[in-house]
Design a binder for these strands. Structure first.
Lengths: 163, 163
DNA sequence: CACTATTAGTTCGTACACTAACTAATATAG
DNA sequence: CTATATTAGTTAGTGTACGAACTAATAGTG
């Protein structure tokens, strides 16, 4: 993301130097925050044998199963080329099945196995554990979530303009 | 990140179902926001021949050059195994040089080339362009930046506890 | 009904990101 | 001074991400 004014004393004419300062790039903060939080998840997901993207796919399926690849891609904002191998790994792990739909042979029905459904019980421990480890106020998390939602909407609109 | 309470009417006993709802996972929002904003950067960086991580490295070097690999890794919170090939690509692109330090042969001095320094002029157009495309208020970006900083600190502390 | 366009997934190639294992150089202890 | 420990980067292997090209199946059109 672009730069934002430094908090407090903002000079009237920001030198170009400051525009490119690392600590003022919101996108930099976004990327770092994302990586940092993922590294809090990692040790919690590892015993379940899941990576974070795989965990997100399982969340989508626990909400509703079966789903098509495109449906999951839409929910997670991922391309099918990313999901394709990921889903195969989940199949190898015995958590899902991949089968061509009867209605439409182009579509692939992704469905939870019994083991996949069972894993949910383990997964329910994750969110509270993460919140506990972060030790942040719920209010802070809520305001972050609100800000993030705005950015996502804004970025998506920017992409659509582009297209 | 874990879940946060739904805004407004929060039930006293949240069913476990809700805990795992996709739209309540702050980390999910973080990941999507990060990817979405990166996709706003992509078309702006592409004419410069840079990816976003490469752009961040260049930012670090425009602030100060030369720097060691470890120094850059610390700034960008990246591991050297990630940086190593990335820096080679920047070298191939003629933007930096990689040379063992004279003081300490273990260290690698990463230094801008003339072309690398020149690229800065182009790069200065990026942050305003991103802000313009996003069309968000500076205030919103500031509050986002503040929230992100808190999360980064919290996540880092969580990792350190772990270690 | 045959032809074309569209849609759903896959495959390929490039670029991160992270873990673990490795190499080379410096620092430290005895 | 020499053996050991530490530090700085690299290499190898796995798993995303994303663009581009491809395949198979369905939908639409004349």
């Amino acid at each position: 993301m672009g730069n934002i004014a430094r908090h407090g004393k903002t000079k009237q004419a920001e030198p170009a130097e400051d525009l490119l300062a690392l600590d003022r790039q919101v996108c930099f903060a976004l990327v770092i925050a994302s990586r940092s939080v993922l590294s809090v998840y990692r040790p919690l997901l590892e015993p379940m044998g899941l990576t974070h993207p795989q965990y997100l796919v399982m969340l989508a399926l626990w909400e509703k199963s079966p789903r098509s690849v495109g449906e999951i891609a839409g929910l997670l904002q991922l391309d099918s080329p990313t999901l394709s191998p990921l889903l195969k790994r989940l199949e190898d792990a015995g958590l899902i099945t991949r089968r061509r739909s009867n209605d439409d042979e182009r579509r692939l029905d992704i469905e939870l196995t019994a083991r996949g459904r069972e894993l949910r019980r383990e997964a329910e421990k994750i969110p509270p554990a993460v919140v506990a480890r972060l030790g942040m106020e719920i209010g802070e998390l809520e305001s972050l979530h609100a800000s993030l939602t705005k950015v996502i909407v804004a970025a998506r609109a920017a992409e659509d303009d582009q297209a």
